[in-house]
Nucleic acid binder design. Structure first.
Lengths: 131, 131
DNA sequence: CTTTGTGCAAAGGCTTTGCATGCTT
DNA sequence: AAGCATGCAAAGCCTTTGCACAAAG
């Protein structure tokens, strides 16, 4: 079979977006990243930010969550940890361990005959600085 | 303090929406509910369905989740169970037990100094009938 | 030179809102 | 009679897409 992987080209915009996401450990939306870049003087377009973040998430380079109000937020991916505690107010994110969740997922999958189970587990709260 | 609770009026539309949601155990979006009602001959408006479902969810009468593509889906609430396994294809929903999750939530809250922690835990998979 | 990426603006999809009318209380 | 609920259509928001131009390989 032919490779399904596409190697993206190295453009200035792509580098800028990558840096902007990496610069902050908290989850940020495409629009936030775009604003951040524009304020830094970048001339990158909003559509490009959307496309770039989407591509980076698809390639596994970024982690994705949906905020409570439905927006898509991105973060640089830390392998092995895929659950987060996000501050509703400032967006600060803490990676958390959920011992046993993976096992529980497998148990559930078998128990109910479901396949390709994916879990979306996020905790939202108010951090001490924002309380 | 004055009561923040509003007692909604008993309208034909409200009853129809309530019945439509209760009729199916799977999560359904406002538009789905609206379509269902229209096909049954109801003349309820889409905005009313949105408003009604939103109100019922706010009052705790309905459970809410966000589908992977960002839509809001509702289900009649079963007290004590707030985690679901949803079939990506047919929407069939199974309520699941996550022993220890509540305790974990409390532990996390204390550990990181977060308050008012809310967890969004949903499992999406393909059920046996849809595989 | 060919192909992919970018920008801008328009289009899309879901949800909310403004306002006049109808129905509940 | 007074006020919330409803309907319709318009507006809002976030996100995606079409297309011509620019840049990368």
């Amino acid at each position: 079979m032919t490779s399904t992987e596409r190697t993206p080209r190295n453009t200035r915009q792509r580098a800028e977006v990558r840096d902007a996401v990496a610069a902050n450990p908290a989850f940020a939306t495409s629009q936030t990243i775009h604003d951040r870049l524009r304020h830094e003087g970048s001339k990158v377009g909003l559509a490009t930010v959307y496309r770039t973040l989407q591509a980076m998430a698809a390639s596994g380079e970024l982690d994705t969550i949906r905020t409570p109000d439905g927006q898509i937020a991105y973060r640089t991916c830390t392998p092995g940890h895929h659950h987060h505690l996000v501050c509703r107010s400032c967006g600060r994110t803490v990676e958390i361990d959920l011992p046993g969740l993976e096992a529980t997922t497998r148990r559930i999958a078998g128990e109910y005959g479901f396949a390709e189970i994916d879990h979306e587990v996020e905790f939202f709260g108010t951090c001490s600085s924002c309380a």
